[in-house]
Measured scan of single mutants.
Amino acid sequence: ETFPLDVLVNTAAEDLPRGVDPSRKENFLSDEDFKAVFGMTRSAFANLPLWKQQNLKKEKGLF
Rank of each mutant, 00 (worst) to 15 (best):
E1I: 15
E1W: 09
E1F: 14
E1T: 13
E1K: 14
T2C: 10
T2Y: 15
F3T: 03
F3M: 05
F3C: 07
P4S: 07
P4G: 07
L5K: 06
L5D: 03
L5H: 05
L5P: 07
D6E: 14
D6Q: 10
D6L: 09
V7R: 12
L8G: 03
L8W: 02
V9R: 12
V9L: 13
V9I: 14
V9E: 05
V9D: 04
N10M: 08
N10V: 08
T11C: 12
T11S: 12
T11M: 12
A12Q: 10
A12V: 09
A13H: 11
A13W: 12
E14D: 13
E14T: 09
E14S: 11
D15C: 15
D15G: 10
D15L: 15
L16N: 04
L16Y: 14
P17E: 04
G19W: 10
G19Q: 09
V20H: 05
V20D: 05
V20F: 06
V20T: 04
P22A: 11
P22K: 06
P22S: 08
P22I: 08
S23A: 14
R24N: 09
K25G: 04
E26T: 03
E26V: 05
E26L: 04
N27W: 11
N27M: 15
F28W: 15
L29K: 01
S30G: 05
S30N: 10
D31K: 05
E32A: 12
D33K: 03
K35S: 12
K35E: 15
K35H: 15
A36N: 11
A36E: 12
A36P: 00
V37C: 12
V37G: 00
V37F: 06
V37E: 02
F38C: 01
G39W: 02
G39C: 10
M40P: 00
T41K: 06
R42M: 04
R42E: 01
R42C: 02
R42A: 03
S43H: 14
S43G: 11
S43K: 13
S43V: 13
S43F: 13
A44M: 12
F45I: 00
A46T: 10
A46V: 10
N47M: 14
N47F: 08
N47L: 13
P49K: 01
L50T: 11
L50K: 10
L50P: 11
W51C: 13
W51M: 07
K52M: 14
K52T: 12
Q53R: 09
Q53M: 02
Q53L: 01
Q54R: 13
Q54E: 13
L56F: 05
E59N: 07
K60D: 01
K60W: 04
G61K: 04
